[in-house]
Each structure stands twice: as structure tokens, then as C-alpha cells.
């Protein structure tokens, strides 16, 4: 193609190598090569160890269509349980997290001390140990079944993380907003509700998405106390079928679909809360 500068000054272009590397077709090609390499090594490795792939046996665990009609499989039931667990635990974590954040910000010495102690204890205990504490210690004391213990444990654990998200987001709102609210006679509670919290949503959505995704993922840990969620289902299926590769790939993919859907959904909400 013939090109001649139409003006006296030509904007310098980035170097050729950079332009080629960042062009769309080359990027896609590199991406496909990397993914292909990973899949190939996995396949090659499994062949070397003589693994017998039986993907054709997988669909029945997702759903079956028999003479009796359509039926969901074990993995689908596990997924529903995982989602139930995550939603309930997240609701608990949101409420408790907001409470802890408000206590921490209250300016009351007792309030902020209680909040800090809660935060440090929960944050510095491994999730697995926390789960054992809830199930084996608090469980018998308060007559919690494994499902309730799981929800409480996940809720409390994530409440600590979420309270920090709330606190950071609330602190990100300009101090003048408190004064503006106070100057028209609002109480602290009204200032929180009508002025500060609505503005802090914008700051908390990105990290909160991360927490939602983390919640779904960390809910897998309750499989150690045999709550019948997605990961437990995976283990059960393997003990029946010995298809560990297929099952774990499938379970991982199901988690991925859930978490990606979550992220995408929140990015839509984020657009709604963007600065006007």
C-alpha cells in the first residue's frame, strides 16, 4: 500500500515487534498455543501412566434421560447444595461483616476492640481448623448439624474479610459527605443509610465480587465433614467409578462456570453504580 504523509508532522508509531505481538491474531495464536501445550502435556502424561479415559461415562452424573424422562445427576444436586451453602453463608457474612465494620468505625473503644479481636482471631485461623472448631466443638455444644456448622463457619470466616472491604469502602467516601449530611440534621444512622453506604457501594463491588467467588470456592472445604455439596459429590463418584481425572476436570469446570457467571453479573451491576 502506498503511504505518504499528508501533514508535515507524522506521529511516531510504536516499534514493529511490539505491534506484531499485540495484534489480535497473534495474541489469539499465542493463547491457543499455550492452552494446547497444557492440554497436550496432560494428555501425554496420562497416556504414559496408562490412564484409561472414559469421558463417555461422565454425562450420567450431570443428567440422564431415560424412559422416565429427564433427571438431574449427582453433580447437579451437588451444585445446588454448593450454591445454597454459598448464598446463605454469604448473606450471613454480609450482615456480620457490616456489623463488625460499623463497630470498628463506631469510635466506641469497646466496639472497635471487639471488632479487632474478632477480625484477628478469624483471619489468623486456617479455614479448615475453623471448620473443625465449628463442627466438632461448637457443633455438639449448640446441637448444630453439619450443614448448619458449615454455613456458620463459612459465614464467620468471610465476615472477617468482608468487614475489611466494608471498612475500606466506607473510609473511601469523602469526609465532607459526613459533614454535608450532619449539616442538614441527619443522625449518624441516616448519614450511613442515605449518604455514605450508597456511595461506598462503588468502592466495594470489585473486592466483593472477589469475595463471592472465594465463598463459592472455599465452600468446597466442607466436603471434609461430608456435606453433600459439589466436591463431596465428586469424591463419591470417584469412589464408585475410579474416573478421578474426568471427575475432577468436570468439577473444576462447574466451579469455573459458576464463578465466571458471578463475575460477569457483577460487572453489569458495577456499570450501574459507576460515577454519574
Amino acid at each position: 500500500m502506498h503511504q505518504s504523509p499528508s501533514t508535515d508532522y507524522v506521529i511516531p508509531r510504536p516499534p514493529l515487534a511490539g505491534r506484531i505481538l499485540s495484534s489480535a491474531p497473534v495474541s489469539i495464536l499465542i493463547y491457543l498455543l499455550v492452552i494446547g501445550f497444557i492440554i497436550y502435556t496432560a494428555y501425554d502424561g496420562s497416556r504414559a501412566m496408562g490412564y484409561n479415559w472414559q469421558w463417555y461415562r461422565m454425562p450420567q452424573y450431570l443428567w440422564t434421560i431415560t424412559d422416565e424422562g429427564f433427571q438431574w445427576g449427582e453433580i447437579a444436586f451437588g451444585l445446588v447444595k454448593t450454591l445454597q451453602l454459598s448464598v446463605l453463608a454469604f448473606a450471613l457474612a454480609l450482615g456480620l461483616g457490616l456489623l463488625v465494620a460499623l463497630l470498628r468505625l463506631s469510635g466506641l473503644l469497646v466496639g472497635s476492640a471487639v471488632a479487632r479481636v474478632f477480625l484477628e482471631i478469624v483471619r489468623n485461623t486456617p479455614l479448615l481448623v475453623l471448620l473443625y472448631l465449628f463442627y466438632y466443638v461448637l457443633g455438639p455444644i449448640f446441637e448444630l448439624d453439619r450443614y448448619a456448622a458449615s454455613i456458620l463457619c463459612l459465614g464467620v470466616y468471610h465476615a472477617a474479610l468482608i468487614s475489611e472491604i466494608f471498612r475500606a469502602a466506607i473510609n473511601s467516601v469523602a469526609p465532607g459527605q459526613w459533614e454535608g449530611a450532619a449539616s442538614i440534621g441527619m443522625s449518624k444512622a441516616q448519614a450511613y443509610r442515605y449518604i455514605v453506604l450508597p456511595q461506598s457501594v462503588r468502592f466495594m463491588l470489585p473486592p466483593m465480587t472477589g469475595e463471592m467467588v472465594n465463598m463459592v470456592k472455599s465452600s468446597a472445604i466442607v466436603s471434609v465433614i461430608a456435606v453433600a455439596e459439589l466436591t463431596t459429590m465428586g469424591r463419591n463418584i470417584i469412589s464408585d467409578s475410579y474416573m478421578s481425572f474426568e471427575v475432577w476436570f468436570t468439577i473444576a469446570a462447574v466451579y469455573l462456570v459458576v464463578t465466571l457467571t458471578l463475575s460477569f453479573g457483577v460487572s453489569l451491576i458495577e456499570r450501574h453504580y459507576a460515577l454519574k
Binding site: 469523602a174 465532607g176 459527605q177 459533614e179 454535608g180 450532619a182 449539616s183 442538614i184 440534621g185 456511595q199
Partner: peptide
């Protein structure tokens, strides 16, 4: 504060 209005240097609108 309901009786005393305040106008700030930085406006402090919501």
C-alpha cells in the same frame, strides 16, 4: 443543625 444551615467551601453535595 436543622435550624442552622451550613454552606461549605467544597460544597459537600451528595
Amino acid at each position: 443543625r436543622q435550624e442552622v444551615g451550613m454552606v461549605f467551601q467544597q460544597f459537600n453535595l451528595f
